[in-house]
């Protein structure tokens, strides 16, 4: 059980809350203590739109612990429209074939379960093809 660890970053997982650097105005996700662009201290919250495009992707047939039940699944690097890139699963793909450059949007989904009946269910961001209707 790692409750504090997951609780601590719930606003990132559920809301894609990152930062905007007060010094150079670059958008940052995931949050950092120091701006990777200008080296200034970065503490100002910024909520990302959740829209972006696929930078690269892969379908996994062999997942790590906690993900065995959901294999195969697709993981991608998503370039958000504000600049940063995130690592996340793609979801709701249906028959859509994934391509680099495909527009996607963030949705909240179950990420993994801890296994046993008392285990935690961890929710967080995944991305789905843009235009599937309201989120």
């Amino acid at each position: 059980m790692e409750i504090p660890r997951h609780w601590r970053i719930k606003s990132q997982r559920y809301g894609l809350v990152g930062e905007v650097c007060p010094h150079c105005e670059i958008k940052i996700f995931p949050p950092r203590d120091v701006c990777p662009n200008c080296g200034g201290e970065a503490k100002e919250e910024y909520i990302f739109s959740g829209r972006g495009e696929v930078y690269s992707f892969t379908s996994l047939y062999d997942g790590p612990a906690g993900f065995e039940e959901t294999t195969p699944y697709t993981v991608a690097l998503i370039k958000l429209e504000e600049g940063p890139v995130v690592t996340a699963q793609l979801t709701d793909l249906g028959d859509a074939s994934v391509e680099i450059g495909m527009p996607v949007e963030m949705v909240t989904r179950r990420i993994r379960s801890d296994g046993d009946e008392r285990g935690m269910l961890i929710y967080g961001y995944k991305f789905r093809p843009l235009g599937l209707g309201p989120r």
């Binding site: 660890r5 930078y55 690269s56 996994l60 997942g63 790590p64 993981v75 690097l77």
Partner: peptide
């Protein structure tokens, strides 16, 4: 890897390499 932002998204070291390979092919 970064536990919070990579491993917890279900990625493995092999799939990290796969992401690079896919992009390289492109």
């Amino acid at each position: 890897m970064d536990y919070d932002y990579e491993l917890m998204q279900g990625i493995t070291t092999a799939s990290q390499a796969a992401l690079l390979m896919q992009r390289y092919l492109y």
